[in-house]
Write a protein that binds this DNA or RNA. Structure first.
Lengths: 195, 195
DNA sequence: GGATGATCGTCGCATAGGCAACACATGGTA
DNA sequence: TACCATGTGTTGCCTATGCGACGATCATCC
């Protein structure tokens, strides 16, 4: 395979990703061909396959990069899962979903599913990483941590997604006020005692 | 040398030109090094030399492309040097100079001189081409055509340049009304008889 | 004067990318 | 059915680009 440090490789991958993001704004995922991507990226079609197995792998990477960019500094370096960190995760997730649905034509169910799964997985990993760094209860039990992270990530994602169709969808503070107590209580971490 | 049709070549040249245009907005021509250009273009310094002899050759090409883009369709395909064509050339030249001085830090006398010469030359060539297509007086005399084109191009450029420091610099219509009769009379082409 | 550092322009070698062709799958259509 | 067009992955060969090094030039500083 190619050397991931070579500047030509970095540039080509960036070109492919940019072309793909651009195409997603114009046509549905299913309608995008490798030829389309290669043309817009000004690379050869064969070169695409030197970098990505197929367009699904490309979607996966683009999604990962985009969501990573949404996660605030404070969350990435959080030492404990606090109310503040929880809020930031809720808002970042919600914002990501809003941007995603605004920018991409959603005529492809397969893409929506793939992105859903990807984001949920990243949320869970992010949360689990914070749990492991902090003084989380049953910190030694790996399974316990993972399942708590899975539930928390799913809850946040589910709520953020649901909020798309709510009347007061601009009141993300309301969203956070609903999700935070639920999650923190579920984790046994709520300290403000209003649950 | 490299094959000018290869898509890698086209892309690399475009990257170099874009990087150079961008750098010209931030620092003076003299202060720009080949290393700067290569870094911003995400190419290797040695690759630069496969495409341009030095930064002067690059400036020449970038200037040519930019001025070409300013010349209206009607002028490019003009069959005769009419009042209208003359006006369009005056305004395009003036607009080019305005953009140029607005976008580039003019701490380099050498660059200003090079661009001046380049634009004047392109103007003259454009005008000579129109003369050759139309029913220009003494059409058979190549020298006559060339020198008329040279004077016309120089006059237009000189006036457009001078107009930068005029109080009513926004009244480009006034500029055109001053230059057009002068040029057209000089060429013996003025038909409206107000000279 | 000499030392130092930055840039220039060029070289040979290693590697990523372009090209043309291939077999294969899919879907429309005569 | 057979046919044609279009998209997918893959391959071998060739070319453009990246890299590291080189000597040369120039400016700065001691």
């Amino acid at each position: 395979m190619v050397n991931q440090e070579d500047p030509r490789v970095l540039r080509t991958r960036e070109l492919i990703q940019a072309a793909f993001r651009d195409l997603l704004r114009r046509k549905g995922f299913d309608a995008i061909t490798i030829k389309d991507i290669a043309q817009k990226a000004t690379i050869n079609r064969a070169t695409f396959y030197a970098h990505f197995e197929d367009k699904y792998a490309l979607l996966d990477e683009v999604t990962e990069l985009a969501f990573d960019a949404m996660i605030p500094e404070q969350v990435t370096h959080a030492q404990a899962f606090t109310d503040d960190i929880c809020d930031r995760l809720i808002l970042a997730t919600h914002q990501y979903i809003v941007d995603f649905y605004r920018n991409c034509r959603m005529d492809s169910h397969s893409m929506a599913t793939l992105v859903d799964e990807k984001i949920k997985k990243m949320l869970q990993q992010t949360i689990a990483r914070i749990f492991l760094k902090g003084d989380f209860p049953q910190r030694e039990d790996r399974h316990h941590i993972e399942i708590m992270a899975a539930m928390t990530g799913s809850a946040i994602y589910g709520a953020a997604h649901y909020w798309l169709n709510v009347e007061e969808k601009d009141r993300t503070d309301v969203l956070a006020d609903l999700v935070r107590p639920y999650v923190m209580n579920g984790l046994g971490l709520y300290r403000n005692g209003d649950a």
